[in-house]
């Protein structure tokens, strides 16, 4: 197995450029290869959730905070887009940014009171917040349309073309996803990213090194919330209709399960998680009530067997306390 992986790695090293060109070409012409609108819809969902789960992974996987009610931020972004687009006819592309920024600010305000406390307080606050946002969306009828939701959200246009079918939307989600991965990758490898990771690994040590824990935690949280807002804004015109039932606690758990199953602390993890969970959703469509049970069992199984997730960061606290066992192995080897 190891040999096999090594071969792949060395081949990849040799033909790196070609592999990248082929991959990007495949991604570009992908919609042309898939005739069915149904499959395309599923692919769009995977792409969309990959970024959304990725934004949650920034919070849960990189700084070791635990956000549970991510659906709340997603909801804010979606409603901002829907309301501003239908009532004030603001351009979709502008609203992506606006939705992200407002969501980030709200996220920062929510996280602020919990900064003095352990992470668990943030988890509960986000959980409660998610429910509160849904309740506000449901009850603030004059703005959000209440239980009727917001209807007739216009599809975005680009250079005169209207992008409405899943095939066209595929490119929107793809571009947002690529931008997300690109930007996040750069941040993770920078001073900010290493501060996040050091907080996750050992908060005490990070503090002794002069890292401003509170500042970086809130920065991290706002960054995650920003992308959740962006995805919300991108999602609203895709479905053309939103109401508060889209953003229940179950939706938050759905996103969370993608991150946990796919893997925390790596960029590829949430993408895999989105693919696995959404495929599972399609497979279990006829037993829809068992769907969440399946996710729950998967989450528990992950925690028992592989806490960092399928392709999560193995070399981190996320993987549990495997270090002791490994140390013994290393020592045994040295003795030989």
């Amino acid at each position: 197995m190891k040999h096999f992986i090594d071969t792949i790695k060395s081949t990849y090293g040799k033909y790196k450029v070609i592999v990248w060109i082929i991959c990007s070409l495949l991604l570009l012409i992908f919609p042309a290869l898939i005739p069915s609108n149904y499959v395309m819809g599923v692919v769009c969902r995977i792409l969309f959730y990959a970024t959304l789960a990725g934004s949650l992974n920034v919070i849960n996987g990189y700084s070791g905070q635990m956000c549970i009610g991510h659906a709340g931020f997603f909801c804010i972004g979606a409603y901002i887009e829907a309301i501003l687009a239908t009532q004030y006819h603001i351009n979709f592309w502008v609203l992506l940014l606006v939705g992200g920024i407002i969501t980030a600010i709200i996220g920062g305000l929510i996280a602020l009171p919990t900064l003095r406390m352990q992470g668990i307080y943030l988890s509960i606050i986000t959980l409660g917040f998610s429910e509160v946002v849904r309740l506000i969306a449901l009850n603030w009828t004059s703005v959000t349309g209440g239980a009727m939701g917001v209807k007739g959200i216009k599809s975005p246009t680009l250079l005169g073309f209207t992008l409405s079918s899943p095939k066209q939307y595929y490119y929107i989600f793809l571009v947002i996803g690529i931008v997300f991965i690109f930007v996040t990758n750069r941040i993770i490898n920078s001073r900010t990213g290493s501060a996040w990771i050091s907080i996750r690994e050992d908060e005490l040590a990070a503090r002794s090194l002069g890292i401003e824990i509170k500042k970086y935690k809130i920065l991290n949280f706002m960054y995650g919330a920003f992308w959740a807002g962006v995805m919300g804004a991108a999602y609203a015109p895709y479905t053309r209709y939103i109401d508060s039932t889209y953003f229940s606690l179950d939706e938050g758990f759905n996103i969370l399960s993608m991150v946990i199953i796919g893997g925390q602390g790596t960029l590829i993890g949430p993408i895999l998680g989105a693919a696995v969970v959404n495929s599972l959703t399609e497979l279990l469509r006829s037993f829809s009530e068992w769907r969440m049970v399946a996710y729950a069992v998967l989450i528990i199984a992950m925690m028992w067997l592989r806490p960092q997730g399928l392709v999560g960061a193995s070399d981190s606290v996320l993987a549990g306390d495997k270090m002791k066992k490994k140390k013994i192995k290393v020592l045994a080897k040295e003795e030989k």
């Binding site: 049970v293 996710y295 729950a296 989450i299 925690m303 806490p307 606290v317």
Partner: peptide, 16 residues
């Protein structure tokens, strides 16, 4: 184990 593992487990059990 690190605390977040038990926490996520309770989330999983709660969903279940």
């Amino acid at each position: 184990a690190p605390r977040h593992i038990a926490l996520i487990c309770t989330i999983g059990v709660s969903m279940l």
